[in-house]
């Protein structure tokens, strides 16, 4: 079993990309996905990941800006001469050291130890490889947000950013909901969708700062813990729901509960930090930009491999561009949606 060290890491990444390109004709399935300003061609095997590529994205439409294409190979031994994934050979592994070493060589990458799961990307050539020991040896979070690191690297190279935030919108204007897990983002998004508001995502959305702050949809999956699922009435509404996911949450698709087609973009007018107040009524009050930045940036940077400084700078610029608020969440989903809707209506008028 080969072992990779920081010294040999760039060579290994290039080796994997070359091996996958040489094996291109042997991949049994090709999926094409159209995302904002990006067409992705994915070569892989049939199965869960191939299915996820069919229904895991919100397909882009009417995109005004130039689109580029990238190729991703989701590979494993058994596809032509694809090798077994290497293991890590240095005594210590740090995400930052790993990413920095690859960035110095013009590459991006991520390694998940538990599964010897590699993801490497060449942003110049827009070619990436995900190498697994078998076709289904991927982390449990992959199907809900397929190819997430590749999207992160590609968009970051173009000054955009996958941002860990929920969104709600009205007539093309929207808010970003920032905070770590459990802050109330997903519940607020679902409450808004069920009561007539729009959203472009509850977990990861594509943000850019060109002509103000805008957010675009990427992933179609929403999630709710069993308590929220019941409180929102989704247990009765989505009777065909599947089992709980790896986080103990129900997953469903935005189209299942959205009042209309998912908008292609929302122009963001405010950054909000939700928190569950325990009170009955919701309220919105100004928050310091420091606190908003500390709610927005950490999870958005730490849950993504590499591009830490560019993310910190972009989130800093975003926070300075927007008014920031603290959203105290009441207990009634309809009342929460009404509070956000009234805020958005005031921002539009």
């Amino acid at each position: 079993m080969p072992r990779v060290t920081l010294e040999t890491l760039p060579d290994y990444a290039r080796y994997l990309i070359g091996a996958a390109e040489s094996a291109a004709a042997a991949f049994p399935v090709t999926r094409k996905s159209r995302l904002p300003r990006l067409d992705i061609t994915t070569h892989l095997s049939p199965g869960t990941l191939a299915d996820a590529l069919c229904h895991g994205f919100v397909e882009a439409r009417d995109d005004e800006a130039a689109t580029v294409g990238c190729r991703i190979f989701v590979a494993h031994p058994g596809i032509a001469d694809m090798p077994m994934p290497a293991q890590w050979g240095d005594a210590h592994y740090t995400e930052h050291g790993f990413a920095t070493r690859l960035a110095e060589a013009g590459l991006r990458g991520h390694f998940y130890h538990d599964l010897d799961f590699w993801q490497v990307y060449d942003p110049q050539r827009r070619v990436g490889v995900q190498l697994m020991t078998t076709a289904d040896a991927f982390p449990p979070w992959e199907p809900a947000a397929p190819l997430r690191p590749f999207l992160h690297w590609e968009y970051a190279a173009r000054g955009m950013r996958l941002t860990h935030a929920g969104t709600l919108g009205l007539e093309g204007k929207g808010i970003l909901l920032a905070g770590s897990g459990g802050a109330g983002k997903s519940g607020t998004v679902a409450a808004g969708l069920l009561n007539g508001l729009d959203s472009v995502g509850d977990d990861y959305v594509l943000v850019d700062l060109e002509r103000g702050v805008s957010a675009r949809p990427l992933f179609s999956t929403l999630k709710q813990d069993p308590q929220g699922f019941a409180r929102l009435g989704l247990k009765q509404r989505l009777t065909g729901h599947g089992p709980l996911n790896w986080q103990g949450k129900y997953t469903f698709h935005i189209a299942d509960i959205a009042p209309r087609q998912v908008p292609a973009r929302l122009d963001i007018i405010a950054l909000m930090v939700p928190h569950i107040s325990g009170g009955k009524a919701s309220s919105i009050a100004p928050a310091s930009r420091r606190d908003a930045m500390l709610a927005l940036a950490p999870s958005g940077i730490m849950q993504m491999p590499g591009e830490r400084e560019s993310g910190f700078r972009l989130f800093g610029d975003l926070t300075r561009l927007l008014p920031c608020y603290r959203l105290s969440l009441g207990s009634d989903p309809e009342e929460i949606a009404g509070t956000v809707s009234n805020f958005l209506a005031r921002g539009i008028s």
């Binding site: 080969p2 072992r3 210590h92 740090t94 130890h113």
Partner: peptide
């Protein structure tokens, strides 16, 4: 910081 069980490796030569 993830510590890899490198002690199990006879020849920690890395790759390639």
């Amino acid at each position: 910081i993830v510590v890899d069980p490198i002690h199990e490796v006879d020849e920690p030569l890395g790759w390639p």
